[in-house]
Amino acid sequence: MVFQTWVVYKEGNWISSIFWVVLLICLGSATTCAYIVSKLFEITSSGLSQNPLDLLLLRQDNLPERKCSFVVIGRTIFSILGILMAALVTYTVITDGLPFRKDLLTPWMAATLIDFYINIFAISVWVVHRESTWISAVIWICLLICFGSITTCGYIVVQLLQVSYQDPVYHLLLNSHSKYGIAPLQKI
């Protein structure tokens, strides 16, 4: 859901948004990697004076005038998704037990885990970009690895709570320094 939301934000029209979202749903991290690479090729040498990750994350054209607060909508959607995933995982553990059983170790499980960790890597790059210290970035990444989409939704909600509902939603994508026009500080 995170990558699909970013693609819809990043793409200039609905046809390409739908195309990429369908590919993301069907092919997972392979599409995530292809999309990121295609967007990296769109960054021109004239844009390299800016933070390349900001150029990758943000739309390059002007957003239409908004009629509602996308920050509030994002807070609501990702809160619901996080709660839904936490409830689903809790229910599954209660009714079926922990997933560390030999009968669950199939080739599809291996493919799913590899797909999951490739997407976690992409989200982790954004988390490192957003966080002001390495310690907080490492903690969030450990939580992402352990709890997956529950942590992803929680992280997004925490970040959305730090953004005013009047701010443009792209402030969620930037680190705290670049969204205010200050050069990013060295992480310690």
Score class of each variant (00 low, 15 high):
109 M>P: 00
125 V>F: 14
112 T>V: 04
108 W>S: 10
109 M>R: 14
132 S>L: 03
136 S>G: 02
108 W>F: 11
134 W>E: 07
114 I>Q: 10
111 A>P: 03
121 F>E: 10
103 D>Y: 12
127 V>D: 01
111 A>V: 12
80 I>A: 11
130 R>E: 04
124 S>R: 02
125 V>E: 08
83 I>E: 04
128 V>M: 11
118 I>K: 01
114 I>S: 08
137 A>L: 02
72 V>Y: 09
110 A>F: 14
110 A>G: 13
117 Y>E: 14
124 S>P: 03
129 H>W: 14
108 W>E: 05
85 M>F: 10
95 T>Q: 09
116 F>H: 11
76 T>R: 09
80 I>N: 05
72 V>A: 15
75 R>D: 02
94 I>T: 04
119 N>S: 14
101 R>V: 14
135 I>Y: 08
127 V>Y: 01
94 I>Y: 06
75 R>Q: 07
89 V>K: 03
93 V>S: 12
124 S>D: 12
130 R>A: 03
83 I>W: 03
109 M>A: 12
111 A>F: 09
83 I>Y: 05
74 G>Y: 06
115 D>Y: 08
89 V>I: 13
85 M>E: 07
107 P>L: 15
94 I>S: 10
116 F>R: 02
101 R>Y: 06
106 T>A: 04
77 I>T: 05
98 L>A: 10
94 I>V: 12
102 K>E: 15
96 D>Y: 05
89 V>F: 15
106 T>H: 02
131 E>L: 02
129 H>Q: 12
100 F>C: 12
72 V>T: 14
78 F>M: 10
109 M>C: 11
87 A>C: 02
87 A>Q: 01
80 I>G: 11
95 T>F: 05
112 T>M: 11
71 V>A: 06
135 I>S: 08
111 A>I: 04
78 F>R: 00
74 G>H: 05
108 W>T: 10
92 T>G: 08
73 I>N: 02
90 T>E: 15
100 F>T: 15
91 Y>T: 04
122 A>M: 14
77 I>A: 06
117 Y>G: 05
123 I>M: 13
123 I>S: 00
132 S>D: 07
111 A>D: 07
126 W>Y: 06
95 T>R: 14
122 A>N: 08
92 T>Y: 07
128 V>E: 09
131 E>N: 06
110 A>N: 09
98 L>Q: 06
120 I>R: 00
79 S>M: 13
86 A>R: 00
85 M>R: 14
127 V>A: 02
123 I>T: 04
88 L>A: 14
137 A>D: 00
83 I>C: 09
96 D>E: 13
121 F>G: 11
88 L>Y: 13
82 G>N: 04
137 A>I: 00
91 Y>P: 01
112 T>L: 15
86 A>W: 06
128 V>C: 12
123 I>E: 11
72 V>W: 09
96 D>M: 06
96 D>H: 09
137 A>Y: 00
83 I>M: 10
92 T>V: 08
130 R>H: 11
135 I>P: 03
73 I>P: 01
